[in-house]
Design a protein around this nucleic acid. Structure first.
Length: 398
DNA sequence: GTCAATTCACATGAAAGAGACCACGGTCTAGTG
DNA sequence: CTAGACCGTGGTCTCTTTCATGTGAATTGACGA
């Protein structure tokens, strides 16, 4: 056995890989040249350029669906800006959706402070002191702080607009320095329930990132593939197919990159000579499978119990799954497994969380005399469903 | 037959509690010279 | 005398409960034709 393993590893090392640099096909990679975004780049650059002369640029609001290059463009511009002047110009990019770093007001501030080389404890201090610290730190010397908040809609939904309001307030009080906010969102409508003061100051300038079309996606993919993959390892239609599939998904370049990367990985693992369109199809399935299964496995126990309850109702062939039905099953499931069960109020929230994650689709319907409830359908394909079912049945009794 | 009132089964909101984690400052204790 | 242990207070965070209010159409029942 051990010998086998060794030869396996040795062979693995020897085995030819399709990749020159796999990193280039991930979303965190910032290319030297960004295709099809010239207009947006130059617009943003024009707005931010005054920062180089220590004049405060306008706040910017950037819209665009996922994978339209918002984050890449902002990171790219930041990189260029700080290459020219990193003494009085500080750029901070925060993805609000990433847990841990920044999903509360406190953590957000802590992260910003950390970026300013002033680490603060993760907890224990009043938020107010962090604001004061931030204020002092920025005002200490003359500088411009460019603060990009990616996935801002997620943050606002979670903790409200207090942070933004306070930041703009601080800005008004700052004398020597200024903060410029760059809000990035893929949901145009979310500003509607923003404090009007925040809204107006945040959207001094607005920039829209339209989705890529299939041709543009193809360009982008070709450019990246040239650097990431060895020459002649993929057949004709592969890139086009990735582009076409991603174009269907609102021109999501991220998706296109994922497809190509995973297709290459699959081909490599199968020891196939070339990446073919078939691998792309497999990649599409694998991405979906992984996403769903990972998501479900990461859920807290009670969410899983709720999801499993929905599974059971679904299997029983219930034509409409309602909140009350789920709750009944959920309770019996809890009892049988020795868990304390949560209130219906909480379960209702868990259901809507599962809905937001896209594991189920829930619609609030009014059934007249028979009340108002959610009608729930599973939004999971057969394969991940089966996988998860066996995962859950190992986890729980019946 | 028509129309407003009623009613159901939750949805949705707000507030507050529990328990975990942590910082900070004060006090106590043991080791050192 | 001092470093470190220990403690109390006060802070955040997440998950949850409690209490309160909202909601939209099927149903009901009064009413008039």
């Amino acid at each position: 056995m051990q010998e086998k393993l060794r030869t396996y590893f040795l062979e693995y090392v020897d085995k030819k890989s399709f990749f020159v640099n796999k990193n280039i096909l991930t979303h965190s990679y910032i290319p030297n040249e960004i295709l099809h975004r010239d207009e947006q780049i130059s617009n943003i650059a024009k707005i931010l350029a005054p920062a180089l002369k220590l004049e405060q640029p306008s706040n910017i609001f950037i819209y665009g669906t996922t994978g339209t290059g918002k984050s890449v463009v902002v990171n790219y511009i930041f990189k260029e800006l700080s290459a020219i002047n990193n003494k009085n110009l500080k750029t901070i990019y925060i993805n609000c959706k990433l847990r841990k770093t920044s999903d509360t007001e406190y953590r957000m501030l802590a992260y910003i402070l950390k970026e300013l080389n002033f680490p603060v404890p993760e907890t224990g201090l009043p938020t107010e002191t962090l604001y004061n610290k931030l204020f002092d730190l920025i005002n200490e010397r003359k500088q411009i702080l460019l603060l990009a908040l990616d996935e801002l809609d997620a943050l606002i939904k979670k903790i409200g607009d207090e942070l933004l309001y306070n930041l703009t307030r601080i800005n008004a009080e700052l004398t020597k320095s200024k903060i410029t906010l760059i809000g990035i969102s893929n949901d145009i409508s979310f500003t509607e329930n923003l404090d009007p003061r925040v809204k107006s100051s945040l959207s001094e300038e607005e920039i829209i990132f339209p989705p890529y079309n299939a041709i543009q996606l193809k360009d982008i993919l070709e450019e990246r593939a040239k650097k990431a993959l060895k020459p002649n390892v993929f057949s004709e239609g592969v890139i086009s197919k990735c582009a076409a599939l991603a174009a269907q998904e609102q021109g999501d370049a991220r998706r296109a990159l994922d497809l190509l990367r995973v297709a290459a990985e699959i081909a490599e693992r199968n020891e196939d000579p070339k990446i073919t369109e078939q691998h792309v199809t497999l990649a599409e399935q694998k991405l979906e499978l992984d996403r769903v299964v990972e998501l479900a496995k990461l859920q807290p126990r009670h969410s899983q119990l709720v999801l499993y309850s929905i599974f059971k109702l679904f299997e029983k062939g219930a034509d409409q799954i309602l909140t009350g039905d789920i709750y009944d099953i959920y309770i019996s499931l809890c009892k049988r497994n020795g868990y304390r069960f949560l209130t219906q109020r909480r379960v209702s929230d868990l259901i809507s969380e599962l809905d937001m994650l896209g594991l189920i689709s829930a619609k609030v319907v009014s059934k007249g005399r028979y009340g108002r409830t959610r009608e729930i359908k599973l939004a999971i394909a057969k394969k991940p469903f089966d996988l998860l079912k066996s995962y859950f049945s190992n986890l729980f009794e019946i």
